[in-house]
Design a protein around this nucleic acid. Structure first.
Lengths: 229, 229, 229, 229
DNA sequence: GATGAATGAGTCTTCATTCAT
DNA sequence: TATGAATGAAGACTCATTCAT
């Protein structure tokens, strides 16, 4: 009886997965609006009506597709860097993994946007979109642990850095895809780390202040020189 | 006859603008799919069929709405910083303007995404989306002129910096909107500049010593110059 | 084994009744088309498939609901007037009972109409609607027995009178419900009886003189009979 | 311009009529549920979508069909009896016309019932069903004018008589159709008039009281006779 | 007998687009 | 140019019924 239950549950999950996989392929091929429920059913080898036993409607299916993707990505990302790694190494590994994934699964990401940006009638439909939040929290963890170890400065704003990290990588991914140069991933990671390193090390402020003072004096001097003529 | 032509042209443009304005309001209220051509026509006080004399189809109208917006934004952005300003100041002004606009006109930005991410049949339809590119070029100009003046380092990757700049600001805007804290704009700008400054100045840790030597020599030179008077 | 059979049969009938009761409530709440088999199954605490072990399909269930109702009504109507009552009294009792029931169970009556008026594919499906006929026969019996007793005229058309009786009462019921005045039942019955009485007695204006003569002779005969004791 | 307007309006009404005629035929053939919008459009020689320019939805179309029918019936009924006729003659003409129509257009009447009895979501949808009321008022007018002329008694309840009149005729029509004997119309009318005549003439009450007394004595006598044995 | 997951036929309605005027 | 009535393709979703267990 236990095995019966197990089998049942397994079958159910298998069915759900089959729908998601079928739906993903159809959505990626045609985009949300032109994806037909009938085609999804066909590929999943189910009757159309059966889809509705598992998902309330078309919207629920995209959401599931996107959620499934982020869940998967989150799981793999965690494997991409070891907890024993040095914090900068972890960060770099995460950046590498993220950019690689963005480039590779760009279309699924897009799908998420359609979902996110579409105005839906029924309130709370946009709830349950926090799979992305969970994923984003990976960054937070790396930073926080680095701070605990004393490697990262504590006076940085986590939300800002997170936005910088993911925002930069997403835009970079788009650029890579647009110019069709997925091989430049390494260069981008290097540059991003170069930007983040001094900031995270917390050594910038004093340096910068100093530089600023010098620069200001230089500017004044230049202006004087100009007046000498 | 010239005035007749002028009047004609003016009338045409006025009509187009009326459509864009009407369409914007409808799209912002309902999103792309639920926006009805009939409602746009109503608000524009035109017959439905007339819309098609000005724009090929619904897609063309959204595109025009989005393009119009970016064009406007681009114009205003250019006014937001003077060409005589110091390069960092210009950059900061651009960042400030951009973030402010992103937060303020978020819904139009979204609309742009729907447009961008929707799979359209007819090839090349997504062409003409370069209004955004023109806008993005503002950043390039600031950087390039700063490099010309010797204020910014030359060994930075413009595409990367651009992605970092706009990517960070867009994510930050989203965060601000999500948490409904549009007042934090200044803090974000400050942080972004703090990240960019050392990078743009061409400092990496290894160079610091070297820089210091240079700066010291410069200082001495300046002092001499000052004493000359 | 006999008891086993009895139990089995009882269980079967109990199940059937449970379905009918559940179905009645659902049909009355939602009407035929919007009544869902699943809801009926829910309320009857049975699986959907089980319904089909007892009734061929949805139509069969409405029919059973309606039939059940008329059967019940028929049983109770018979109790509403005693066989020893005077025929007019019986008729009045029947009218009273009928109108009261029409007003009270109007919705079930409606349901019967939907059933009756809906065009069904399978021929003969509208057969077995004679529960209503059985009920209507109550009227016939009262009239026929009255005729046997010599109270009612024999030259009346039973079908016509039946139509008049039930037709009038149904329309009256509708009127009562429409104007929400169920208290006027008595008045209607009185009027109906007033209309029927002379007719049933076999009086038409031209006949009145003749009748009077007959009545006088009868009176005389009765008096003689009484004196015989 | 006036003629243009006239033409336009005429065209519109012609279209509406064409839809109604097409819809009537389809509804009568298949009943409400099995009637397809596509078939109606086909017969009306219009695109499916065009139907929706004239009628909100399928329900609105049935309603229009039924309303149209009653309107027509009402117009014709008025022509069926002249205002100068004697009141009983008028009544008889109305009864004749009504019964004839009920038998002839039974299916449309049924359609009206489906409409009336179907539970619709949207409130007020069952409004506008008063075409039937207008028709029913024809009876009221005949009675009231007869009362004015002193031909009909004034102490009769109009609502009751109306229910009797139409109720009887409807049930009679059903009976005629069921037994497929449409030729009996005359007989039914005769009987109905025979029932109504004394009642409307107001001569029944005194007669009836007398009769009742006689009957009661007869009954008593009979019972005594029975006891004699 | 009982179950309830699976089926899949069936259709109203919407709305971008066209085109006769 | 402007109109707006007419078009008709297109598709998500429901739910009575079946049947393997």
């Amino acid at each position: 009886m236990d095995s019966a239950k197990t089998t049942k549950r397994a079958k159910l999950e298998q069915r759900e997965k089959r729908i998601i996989v079928a739906a993903r392929s159809v959505f990626l091929e045609h985009g949300f609006n032109k994806a037909k429920m009938s085609q999804i059913a066909d590929i999943a080898e189910l009757a159309e009506g059966t889809l509705y036993l598992y998902y309330k409607n078309k919207n629920a299916i995209v959401k599931a597709v996107v959620a499934d993707h982020w869940r998967e990505i989150t799981d793999e990302a965690q494997k991409a860097f070891s907890d024993t790694d040095e914090s900068f190494t972890q960060l770099q590994a995460l950046a590498d993994y993220h950019l690689t994934m963005m480039v590779k699964h760009w279309r699924v990401i897009e799908l998420g946007y359609v979902l996110y940006y579409s105005h839906s009638d029924d309130a709370g439909e946009n709830a349950g979109m926090d799979f992305k939040r969970t994923y984003a929290a990976l960054f937070d963890r790396v930073i926080e642990r680095g701070q605990d170890k004393g490697i990262f400065a504590k006076n940085v704003s986590l939300p800002f850095l997170r936005d910088l990290f993911y925002g930069t990588l997403e835009y970079a991914a788009r650029t890579l895809i647009l110019h069709n140069k997925p091989q430049d991933i390494k260069a981008i990671i290097t540059q991003l780390m170069a930007v983040l390193r001094p900031h995270l090390s917390g050594k910038t402020n004093s340096q910068t202040d100093n530089d600023n003072a010098v620069l200001k004096r230089l500017e004044r001097a230049v202006r004087k020189l100009e007046r000498l003529r």
